[in-house]
């Protein structure tokens, strides 16, 4: 987490330093400005309304919900949350999701940054082939090769283990991460690592003490998109994680939703709210880094 927040600081500083050159007005007539405001308000309402109604219903008693599914709760039943937490096994699900997501992030960052460093530092035959063969897979979604992936995982005996989703998650994050790291490393001045080499620093020292500390923005961006996609991933979890004790949050929420509790809507809504709360809270705290990490990465890729 520390790398993310320090990358975050750097991004914030850069944001402040940027001149706000598009502040000049007067190009649009005031009518258009009004139309613009109306459009934005309507769209924002469209995003917020379902979430607010959902939150409201999660706090109703079951009977209250059935007669009054749209209005304000007659009384706030916070006990729903405690009951949902226990019945849906939320603590287990959250811990599992944390394990899977953090392991995915660490593996992706370490292996991909080393790979990018190797591809940038060494000039050997075949390096372009390696780079291209990884980048070509950028546009192929994991879902499409799920069956051979499943067969391979059976042979590696990692089906129904957390490793069985961690490794494919990390591998599928690699093309985009490789693009980000490689572009970033290429922009660093080569004089830095050359000077360190002359001073007797080993290659590993150059990578660990010079390149990686300078690459915090890239590490932050990779960490964010890898973490969010691993945290929210559903399909591989559905196929690979059968044991309840190792299921991740999205899968556990779905299992809870189709279980016997689906007749008690407020309870289900409470469980889902608990499930999405951690990510929403982290997002609201660091929205700038999330937006640039998720959308910026996609743009470069």
């Amino acid at each position: 987490m520390s790398t993310v927040s320090s990358g975050a600081e750097a991004a914030r500083v850069r944001w402040r330093a940027r001149p706000r050159q598009y502040q000049k007005r007067g190009v649009l007539p005031w009518q258009l400005n009004l139309v613009r405001l109306v459009i934005l308000l309507m769209a924002a309402a469209g995003v917020v309304f379902p979430i607010v109604v959902f939150l409201g219903n999660s706090l109703k008693a079951d009977g209250d919900f059935l007669v009054n599914p749209l209005g304000w709760p007659q009384q706030f039943v916070f006990a729903n949350y405690w009951e949902a937490w226990q019945k849906a096994n939320m603590s287990v699900l959250i811990v599992n999701s944390l394990i899977v997501s953090i392991a995915t992030v660490v593996i992706t960052i370490v292996l991909t940054s080393m790979m990018a460093f190797g591809l940038v530092t060494f000039r050997f035959r075949g390096r372009h082939v390696i780079l291209l063969s990884v980048l070509m897979m950028l546009t192929i979604p994991v879902q499409v090769y799920i069956i051979p992936l499943y067969v391979i995982s059976i042979n590696l005996k990692i089906v129904n283990t957390q490793l069985g989703v961690i490794l494919p998650y990390a591998a599928s994050s690699m093309p985009l991460a490789l693009v980000l790291f490689r572009n970033y490393f290429l922009e660093l001045p080569p004089a830095l690592s050359e000077a360190a080499r002359l001073d007797g620093c080993s290659r590993w020292g150059v990578y660990w003490r010079i390149i990686m500390p300078l690459s915090r923005p890239a590490i932050g961006a990779v960490a964010i998109f890898t973490f969010v996609s691993a945290w929210n991933e559903f399909f591989l979890a559905l196929v690979f994680l059968q044991d309840k004790s190792i299921q991740t949050l999205p899968l556990g929420m779905q299992v809870f939703a189709i279980s016997e509790y689906q007749t008690n809507y407020p309870l289900l809504f409470s469980a889902i709210t608990i499930g999405m709360a951690p990510m929403v809270i982290v997002y609201l705290l660091m929205q700038r880094q999330f937006i640039s990490g998720l959308a910026g990465g996609a743009m470069k890729g």
Partner: peptide, 17 residues
């Protein structure tokens, strides 16, 4: 430098495709 990452990528992306 490149081997570990490439191995993971090969087993879980190239090979399945």
């Amino acid at each position: 430098w490149i081997g570990p990452g490439l191995l993971l990528f090969f087993v879980f992306v190239h090979l399945p495709v």
